Simulated assay, not measured.
Amino acid sequence: MNNIKQLQALISKEIERTEYGQAPRELYEPIEYIMSLGGKRLRPLLTLLAYSLYKDDVESVLRQAIAVEVFHNFTLMHDDIMDEAPLRRGKNTVHEEWNHNTAILSGDVMLVKAYEMLITDQASLTVEVLQTFNQCAREVCEGQQLDMLFESRREVAEEEYLNMIRQKTAVLLGFSLELGGLLAGAEKQNCEALQKYGINIGIGFQLMDDLLDVYADKEKFGKQVGGDILSNKKTFLLIKALDNAKGEQKKELEGWLEKKQFDPEEKVKAVTKIYNDLGIKELTENTMNEYFEQGFNFLRRIDAPLHRKSVLRKFTESLAAREK
């Protein structure tokens, strides 16, 4: 089975019937709540697509695939606390709906549950899966810490930023794909290529998000366009603009970054004009496309039937072709 909609339906059904615990309800209700908020369910889907490169019985690894989504939502729950975010997917965040302490504890239980769900019926495979997951989870935490550190730094180098998004976002996509390969018994070089494929497209997707925040159609984007500009978030676009701006242009950009009071629309318009004058959109698109192409190069190296790889490639291409 490799039809995307069928796989998505399987994932949704498995999430709905997954139990996290019974009592106290105040500990487990927040988990059921955040897992019910939806989202793209991209990570478990990638696990099933990678598994489908070699085997057809995807139902047998649904539990492990959902583990990745449980871990992802654990990171979101804790990120929301750190960011003091009021909303997640249009609904109250867990710490808003309950409280900070409950959100922390519920998140901790989600991490434990993810480990529990990753256990397979083969001891040696379980050890390999958990060792790989541990490396991924550690890097996700490192990436989140770097992201927070960057908020208080005046300058962030391009290489530092790319490494941060690799750790915070991309390595989990890489693990999702690698997990599918491991569970299918794929050879080591194929599992490694799956991981590198995921990491490269993950960096590409984050660069795309940076672009969309400035250049997306407001009606299609689903959130405020220019939010990163208003919060002075150190995205790839801002880093490149600070690197390339000179003279009065640099002075104007730094002036907007230092202003505490401003008209939001005016700031977004002014900073976007600086980006346009410097060709930042094109620079970002070029870097984004380089990472996508590197990812597809790793996909080409994977030893699997072409018609099965084409499903994974077409799905990735559909994500990379989101409307700007």
Rank of each mutant, 00 (worst) to 15 (best):
N3C: 10
I4S: 07
L10S: 09
L10D: 06
K13G: 02
K13R: 13
E14T: 11
E14G: 04
R17W: 03
Q22V: 14
E26C: 06
E29T: 12
P30T: 03
I31H: 03
M35D: 07
L42M: 13
A50V: 00
A50G: 00
S52D: 09
L53Y: 02
K55R: 15
A67T: 10
E84P: 00
R88I: 05
K91R: 15
T93R: 05
T93S: 14
A103P: 03
L105R: 09
D108V: 02
D108Y: 07
L111S: 10
M117Q: 09
I119M: 09
T120S: 15
E128T: 13
N134G: 13
C136P: 01
F150V: 05
R154C: 00
E155H: 15
E159N: 07
E160R: 04
R166S: 12
R166I: 01
K168L: 11
A170Q: 09
G180N: 07
L183G: 00
L183N: 00
Q189H: 12
Q189S: 14
N200A: 13
E219T: 14
G222Y: 08
K223L: 04
G226W: 06
D228C: 06
D228V: 02
I229C: 07
K233R: 13
K240S: 13
N244G: 02
K246P: 00
E248L: 13
Q249G: 06
E254M: 12
E258C: 02
E265F: 08
V268H: 06
V268Y: 06
I274K: 08
T284I: 05
N286D: 11
N286Q: 14
E290Y: 12
F296A: 10
F298V: 00
L299K: 12
I302S: 03
L306V: 10
K314A: 14
T316L: 14
E317G: 05
L319K: 15
